[in-house]
Design a protein around this nucleic acid. Structure first.
Lengths: 135, 135
DNA sequence: TCATATTTGCAATATTGTTGCATTTAAATA
DNA sequence: TATTTAAATGCAACAATATTGCAAATATGA
């Protein structure tokens, strides 16, 4: 449960962190900072930004960015590794062209690709199409 | 050449647009708005933002975003299609972990992936590793 | 060359995120 | 349980990035 998740990531248990984490648990899709703000009734914006930053640093959540000023956040899968600069996922970031929502979809394995002149260590896949509800 | 590129995209030929487009031509990697600003000696910031926006709308350049507030711009390949919401690339966005530069690398074909419950129309791949110069 | 729609440049403003610092709080220790 | 201390919070100020409205300037088609 929520408290254990924070403990596992060595994050101090504060009521604000529990509230923020609850918002993530309540969503099955990636959410924007503004979605978190809407879900909280009374909060300090600076503290929220710092909370998000520490959640990211500890590998509790990850950031998803897409062209067009789309910045979202989503819970990491529990076995998620966090490395400097890049984030190792075994999932795909999918954006629905209709509802615009972004989902993290687990995949068994990512395809390997190789390029001349570039050594690829990690890849991230962003897919666009239609989700089950919008198809 | 530069003027033809603008004409092809039905963008009016203004000296400012030619200057901005020249900055893109001078670079083999993706550039940030600040890189354009540095390359221009005297300019209006608002006009630059609008120029970038119209270049993107007409499919002359495209936006590349990566986690960590990295937003860059790069010329589209000439056969580039532009669709609402997503941008069809047959190239990979590669970021070097050492020099941090982002390159658009053409690939013959992107791997096809499929997910249950999601209909994938386009995918974009973001790769991290080391470029030829930093390896 | 003229008419017109587009582009530019300026001012004001919005959005998003950060830093410094004093206060409060969680959790480790006695 | 009481005490200590390092981390987290809340406030003020600020920084970076981007947008809107509007008048003046300019590119292009007739």
């Amino acid at each position: 449960m929520i408290e254990q998740l924070l403990k596992d990531k060595r994050l101090r248990l504060t009521s604000f962190r529990k509230e923020v984490l609850q918002v993530f648990m309540d969503n099955d899709k990636a959410i924007a900072v503004s979605d978190i703000e809407d879900a909280l009734n009374d909060f300090d914006r600076i503290t929220l930004y710092r909370t998000i930053k520490s959640f990211i640093e500890k590998g509790l959540i990850h950031e998803i960015v897409m062209p067009g000023d789309v910045k979202k956040l989503a819970l990491c899968p529990t076995e998620c590794h966090h490395e400097a600069g890049a984030h190792e996922h075994s999932h795909v970031h999918f954006q629905c062209k209709k509802c615009k929502e972004i989902f993290c979809v687990d995949v068994p394995a990512l395809p390997k690709i190789s390029l001349p002149n570039y050594q690829i260590d990690e890849i991230e896949i962003q897919a666009h199409g239609f989700c089950a509800g919008c198809r």
